[in-house]
Every structure is written in C-alpha cells, then in structure tokens.
Write a protein that binds this DNA or RNA. Structure first.
Length: 416
RNA sequence: GCGGGCGUAGCUCAGCAGGUAGAGCACCAGAUUGUGGCUCUGGCGGUCGCGGGUUCAAGUCUCGUCGCUCGCCCCA
C-alpha cells in the first residue's frame, strides 16, 4: 500500500462535501434564530486546560488525549472537546463580564485516541453551543431547544431525548455515598470493570452495558430521590418548559456522563439509526468549571453534537434536499488555435455567474461533449472556426438536444 | 488495551476439492473527418495487503504481520 491516512481519520471527498456544507448551513441558520454567535479557538491547548477540567480519572484524560511535548518542551494537547477550551478563552478575554448572558456556538475538528468503530473516529467533528452566565433552568431549556431545532431542521425528528439531573454538589455527594454503599454490598456480582469503576467513579457503574451490572444496578438507589429542593425545582422546571415546547424527554435516572464537570441537568440525544454508539449529541450544566479555571463562579450549560453521527443518521434517513454543486455550462471547441476566442466566451459566461468549464486535455470535440455530459451541465456552448469567424456561438441544451446560434455580443444578455 | 469479521483490477465482487487470475460497473478510444446521453467494438488496468512455511506447484492450505471493519471500554 502507498501512504495512507492516519487510523481513525477520514478524508471528506468532493462527492461528500455538499452534505457537510448543508449541515453547516442549517447550523448557521438555526443558531442565528437563537442569537448565538460563532466561537473559534485553537485546535490545541496547553494540556492542563483539559486535564484539569474534564477530570483526571476520566477515560478522555487517561488514555484518549493526543498529548505531546512541543519543541520548547511544553505539553500541549489536541482538543478532545470544546467546553474546556471555550471556558478558558471566555475567562482569558473576560467576555463573561461584558454582557449578562453569553451565547456561543462552534463547529470544528476534535481528537481522541480511541479504537475507531462506527460513528467513532480519532479526528471527528462536533457542532455545539454554550449558554454562559445563567444559573436558571430557562437556559438549560434554551440549550436543549436549540439542539432540537437543529436536529429537526435536518430532518431528525424521531430522536429520543434522555434527561437526568445529577443535582448540585451537595446532592450529588450524598447520592455518591449511597451508591458506593449499595454497590459495595453487591460488589462480587459486578463485572471486573465496574468493580474498578466503584473506586474511581461509582456513578458510571450505572450506565455499564455488562449484563451483570445492569442486573445489579436494578436495585440501586435512584438519584432523583437524593435531589434537594433547589436541585429538584431546577430539574422540574426544565422538564416543564420542554414539555410546553412539545419536547417529551425520557427521564433516565441512570444517565450519567463521562465528564466530571457536569452537575444538575445532563442529557443525550439518541437515534436508532446509529450503531452501538447511539447518541448523536449530549451535554449538561457545568456550574463549577469557571472556578476550576481560577475564575469567579459562573454557571453555564451546553451541548455538543457529533457531525459524523448526524451524517450517519441523515444517510440512513436519506434526508438531504436537492444538493447540487454541478457546473452549468461547458464550452466545447475542437481547435486550440481558438483559445483566445474560447476564453473570451468563457469569461463572459463566468461573469454572468455561471459555473463554466472548458477543455484542458485538448481532446476531440466528441470527448469534450462526453465530459460535459458526465459533468452534468445543462448547456454546452460550441465555439468552432465558423463561430469564431462570424463572431457567433452555438448554445446546445443538453436535456432536449436543441441548439441555437447567437452572436457573441448577445451572450452576456442571453437567458440560459 | 481486548474480542469477532474481512483484505483479488478505481468500485462491487467471482475464482469449484491447490496447477501460475475473471466478470459487471467505471475509465479511454473508435463506429465515413464539428456534438453527449442508448447500442456495438476495441483498449487501459491486478507483485491476488505484506512476509515466512508446506508442496513439483498457493489467490486457493498454514503461521505471522499490517490494514480495514464491527463490538467492548468510553464518548460525539
């Protein structure tokens, strides 16, 4: 084999690019409806940006980060997610003190060193949004609604919204203790992985896929029973607002997420069109992250959606509108001596705004027609010796086959 | 890091119980010398992922290796 791409990376080939552009267009339109503005940060950051925020004992930090020392000896990391980088940037530029609320969206590549499988790559793309500086449930609602708008605008109508609350820090700590007590009592029936999780992050025993863990988790305490009044009120208003907007969340008390910085609301968007990795989006509230970075406490909530996973869903649903990046016109000629005249014609067409091709291979007229046909143009403009001598061009409609002749002086005004 | 499946022309694949490679599509060119799509004819194109082993002989058996893919872990 010749040189190949790096494992877990994908070339986005020209035949696929219109799908990407379509998704990006939809994202721009929908986020604009909510008044969110785009945010771009560097592809890599100092390693502490992620290790400190995401959690030292998460898989992302432990084994999935692309971390390396640069020539100066600094440890840098290809971003595995956006939230930490964006919080770093907002703090650095004091954007959180310029307006009451900050609303941002982003789109770009992210990197995680994992074994690739369906819907999981080492370089993948996420679209996401962050709503910063509001502690209130209406911002949780707004963020989920934005994800809903984008999903539905893309035609993903039948997704499942899984929703849970981890509560505030006090609630979560109480629950954590109860959970450790419970799982310790059935420890021997847990999978090896989960016995390990019990030490590191007991919440994650809950969403294990191992049958014995699922069985064991059935009798586990319910996190929702541990929410204090503040946490419960918050969660209930989020649910109420969503329902009023026609979004029916599925309450999943065992939904926890792999990033340590979440509290209160957490959620996932799932679709049956995907494989084992069935969630195409997820997010939650992160009220403590600003402090982690040394800033003043500042509440926020956000989500991220996997673009490749949305693509899988759209492919399965065949949900693309008529996407076309086909050229409009091909200028055919059999005679290279006519190049100046050909180019004059080509330029007139391009200045009309038509996507115009011409032959670069010095092929026969027949071959040029074949290429024109394959390219999918609606019109061929024929420029031969006779046309040159008479200052004319032939215009052939490829669909019907009819052909007319007009003067080159009329070409600029001709209605194709 | 672990487990399953796969690896033959650009693509999709065939190749029976081992005897030194085929099809369709795609691509290129012709079918009475300025015109496509249909049809016909011809052409280009493969060290059968790579390396070792068994054999007179391996795409076909065997071992290893690499790659792809699906799944586990975890996430988007």
């Amino acid at each position: 084999m010749m040189l190949q791409n790096v494992k877990g990376t994908k070339d986005i080939l020209p035949g696929q690019i219109s799908k990407w552009q379509y998704i990006e267009d939809v994202i721009r339109k929908e986020t604009a409806k909510f008044g969110y503005v785009e945010y771009r940060t560097p592809i890599f950051e100092k390693t502490e940006v992620f290790s400190r925020s995401i959690g030292e004992n998460t898989d992302i930090v432990n084994k999935e980060m692309y971390t390396f020392a640069d020539k100066g000896g600094d440890s840098v990391t290809l971003r595995p997610e956006m939230t930490a980088a964006l919080v770093r940037s907002v703090l650095q530029h004091n954007l959180h003190s310029l307006t009451p609320t900050q609303r941002y969206w982003y789109f770009g590549p992210f990197f995680r060193y994992e074994r690739p499988q369906k819907g999981r790559l080492r370089q993948f793309h996420q679209f996401g949004a962050e709503c910063i500086s509001s502690p209130n449930p209406e911002s949780d609602y707004e963020i989920i609604l934005l994800a809903d708008y984008v999903s539905k605008a893309l035609g993903i109508n039948d997704y499942t919204l899984k929703l849970n609350s981890l509560g505030n820090i006090a609630s979560r700590e109480k629950y954590r203790e109860a959970l450790i007590r419970y799982f310790s009592s059935v420890r021997s029936s847990l999978s090896a992985d989960s016995q390990n999780r019990l030490e590191i992050n007991p919440l994650r025993v809950l969403d294990s896929k191992a049958p014995e863990d699922i069985e064991a988790a059935k009798g586990s305490p319910n996190i929702l029973d541990f929410l204090d009044t503040e946490s419960r009120d918050h969660f209930e208003l989020v649910i109420k607002l969503l329902k009023q907007s026609g979004i029916e969340p599925e309450i999943c008390p065992r939904l926890v997420r792999g990033l340590d910085y979440y509290s209160h609301t957490v959620f996932e968007f799932q679709s049956s069109a995907l494989g084992a990795q069935d969630s195409f989006g997820g997010g939650g509230r992160y009220n403590e992250l600003f402090q982690e970075f040394g800033g003043k406490p500042n509440p926020a909530v956000g989500f991220a959606m996997g673009v490749e996973r949305m693509l899988i869903i759209l492919d399965a649903l065949d949900k693309y509108p008529g996407l076309s990046d086909l050229p409009d016109v091909y200028v055919v000629s059999g005679n290279t001596n006519l190049l100046p005249y050909i180019n004059r014609v080509v330029n007139i067409l391009r200045n009309k705004g038509l996507r115009t091709l011409s032959d670069l291979q010095r092929k026969s007229m027949k071959s040029q027609f074949r290429e024109a046909n394959k390219a999918g143009v609606k019109f061929v403009v024929v420029v031969g010796v006779e046309e040159f001598e008479n200052e004319k061009v032939q215009i052939k409609n490829m669909a019907g086959g009819e052909q007319i002749e007009i003067g080159i002086s009329e070409l600029a005004e001709y209605d194709f």
